[in-house]
């Protein structure tokens, strides 16, 4: 290869861009970390709480993006894993409060270092079972079957009177974690922000790894994947489980923030919102789901302050963004699929 000037020039451009992006990322993270201080100083302390919810939902949306944006699997039931993660925290708290083990076996807990892994495990196992069955289908059937499983989980928890049924389950105090006091809004927020950053980094690594390449290939042409000798089912299932685990983490943090778990967390509307966040922010981008979560929650709060019929205004805005910014908010900022 005598002529390598073009690839080298492209690599140079990519490197420059890479450093610029890294700088932008660092500034953004610093700004996000400083948010509680700014909010307090400006006299809007409630902003920290909203930002905490955005961070939790962003973890869930980013997890969904792994299979939806990168793997092309349209799951319409990811609120189920979000809710299961949340209920793991709630149920462990409830048994801790009552002092009686679950099924007489598993003791309750109010320790975050126990409840978070438990939530991720429960959500991951549910995703393994539901994914193993759902992934035998594709296209519209896959959308419908994931929705159906999520509805089953939803009604299961509506019927569980022991854990509040459709009234939900109150967690009187946030979980304990060494070195932090989660009763402090800023510390709760920093925990969520830190875990969001960590999870985004993990997902970013996964997307660019060999596994991520296979996932991208499955989205673009499953037939091609089979023709190079890749049995796609196992890869799709593992991605589905990782995505469920992330949603479980998000739900566990959300229940800690709200101090409340309810079946509403796993409603089909919530599943739809998660999909909307991913599409709004930009499918297959690392930061898109975060922007999507921020935009959706932000719009809900601001429009909700103007009128009680805020969904009337939100709807058209979303339609416009989807119509005129294919690739979502990330594409408006000049970052397409696979960049940023």
């Amino acid at each position: 290869m005598a002529d390598t000037s073009l690839p080298e020039a492209m690599a140079d451009a990519a490197r420059t861009r890479g450093w610029r992006d890294r700088a932008i990322l660092l500034v953004m993270f610093a700004a996000a970390a400083a948010l509680p201080l700014i909010a307090d100083a400006a006299g809007f302390p409630a902003t920290t709480g909203i930002a905490t919810q955005i961070a939790c939902l962003a973890i869930a949306a980013a997890s969904l993006n792994l299979i939806l944006g990168h793997g092309g699997m349209v799951s319409f039931g990811h609120a189920a894993y979000f809710g299961l993660g949340g209920y793991a925290v709630g149920i462990l708290w409830e048994h801790f409060r009552l002092g009686e083990p679950i099924f007489g076996l598993i003791p309750g807990s109010n320790q975050l270092l126990v409840t978070l892994p438990a939530a991720m495990l429960v959500a991951g196992l549910a995703a393994l079972v539901i994914g193993a069955l759902s992934l035998r289908t594709s296209g519209i059937s896959f959308i419908m079957i994931t929705l159906a499983f999520a509805q089953m989980v939803f009604f299961l928890f509506v019927g569980l009177k022991q854990y509040g049924g459709d009234d939900g389950l109150v967690v009187r105090r946030r979980n304990l974690v060494p070195g932090l006091d989660l009763r402090e809004p800023a510390q709760m927020y920093w925990l969520c922000l830190g875990l969001l950053a960590l999870w985004l980094w993990v997902l970013h690594r996964i997307v660019r790894s060999r596994f991520g390449r296979v996932l991208e290939g499955i989205r673009q042409s499953e037939r091609r994947m089979a023709a190079i000798g890749i049995a796609t089912y196992r890869y799709k299932l593992v991605a589905f489980v990782i995505s469920g685990v992330g949603c479980g983490l998000a739900g566990a943090l959300m229940v800690n923030y709200l101090r409340f778990a309810s079946p509403e967390m796993m409603s089909w509307q919530r599943s739809g919102e998660l999909m909307l966040m991913v599409i709004l922010g930009g499918l297959g981008t690392t930061l898109g789901p975060v922007l999507g979560a921020g935009a959706l929650v932000g719009l809900e709060y601001t429009l909700g302050g103007i009128t009680e019929h805020w969904q009337f205004i939100l709807g058209p805005i979303l339609v416009l963004i989807v119509l005129f910014a294919r690739g979502g908010l990330m594409s408006l900022l000049g970052y397409g699929r696979g960049r940023g």
Partner: peptide
């Protein structure tokens, strides 16, 4: 198998 999750593939 491609169950390798961390190393970047495009520069391998």
């Amino acid at each position: 198998h491609s169950f390798r999750f961390f190393r970047r593939a495009s520069t391998d």
